[in-house]
Design a protein around this nucleic acid. Structure first.
Lengths: 191, 191
DNA sequence: CTCATTAATTATCTTTTGTTAATTTTTGCC
DNA sequence: GGCAAAAATTAACAAAAGATAATTAATGAG
């Protein structure tokens, strides 16, 4: 069976067998148990991630409360702000499920691009895509009220509701768990 | 007096006199009157912008209401989502003040990078910086309630309050103009 | 300067969310 | 399977935001 990373890259550009070898060499794959913290507040992110299997959640710890900002699942990349800025991280990254994750670092990325130059264009494209996605998400968050955000999430990422606790979805939607619970009741009563 | 674009670039990398000429050649600078719409919903963005002077606002038109998503001011770049995706724009860009704007396009960027290769690294760095800023802004928006967002904006961009109508700041903060007005009163009474 | 237009504020009422605490349900581990 | 811990729900009340309408203030074009 082929490496999911290779599958992912191949959906964008064609790789020769030797290039596949190089990519596989440069890619470190690790497994993490549910609950593992990949990055802590105050720590320096030395690596970026690509989720092969499982779910990673990013969250801030504010007044002792966790405020979820993102759920990363299969085929999503994580470029921690701390990794890009080389400043201490302001948030946590933790595995919500048992995970398989491909790791890369500044050094390994450099080597990889040197050996397979055509990957650079792909990485730049993905980076620009990431910016677009992030901006669209932000706009959508601002333009919708909590109930619409909830209904939209139900449509776009229904799997999340079977993978992570509702309380984390609540803070992801920008409301409290109590409010989400109440809202869910309100919605089911309506229909 | 030197071009602000050159000043901006020079604050990151050193340009030779001939490189400065090339940059100036490739940069088209235009003036727009307050109220000019640079990009409409449904249109294809053919250009990206760099604000030399003035203020440009991005907003969605939802049920006949304008929902502001960003204010771009001096030394900020605008990469419309539509420019990056080549899809019709979902939002508007309009000048809130008389503006001076540097314009670029895919074609001009390509030529510029070809002639001044060291600009590519700068552009990539700016792109990554843009992603970080956007992510941090999003996180901050989600982690703060409307009042805290307002107080923070007062601190970080006090100039905006003298440049754009409060109703646009209100939707930028994710609330209605009426609610912002009420909140402002609440705050002044408190102190 | 004047007047029409737009923006901002205020008031009233409804809806939703936050907060705290208690209760029920679910989960996971021995 | 039983039990402790975590998660979800429910209840009750306070605080804030949305909606609508009326009033006041500010702006800008002629």
């Amino acid at each position: 069976m082929e490496n999911p990373i290779i599958q992912f890259i191949s959906s964008y550009i064609k790789l020769s067998p030797e290039e596949i070898n190089i990519v596989n060499e440069q890619n470190q794959i690790k497994s993490f148990k549910k609950g593992t913290v990949l990055l802590s507040e105050g720590a320096y992110a030395k690596e970026c991630y690509f989720i092969l299997k499982g779910c990673v959640r990013s969250y801030y710890l504010i007044d002792g409360e966790e405020r979820t900002t993102e759920f990363y699942t299969e085929n999503q990349g994580i470029n921690p702000v701390s990794y890009l800025t080389r400043q201490p991280s302001e948030y946590y990254l933790a595995c919500e499920e048992d995970c398989e994750v491909a790791l890369s670092s500044a050094e390994r990325s450099r080597v990889l691009i040197e050996k397979v130059p055509k990957l650079e264009a792909l990485i730049m494209q993905m980076s620009s895509q990431l910016l677009v996605q992030n901006q669209v998400s932000f706009d959508s968050f601002k333009n919708l009220n909590p109930e619409m955000r909830y209904l939209k999430l139900l449509e776009t990422r229904p799997d999340l509701f079977n993978r992570v606790p509702l309380q984390h979805i609540a803070t992801y939607l920008g409301i409290t768990p109590v409010s989400l619970s109440r809202m869910r009741k309100r919605i089911t009563v309506k229909h």
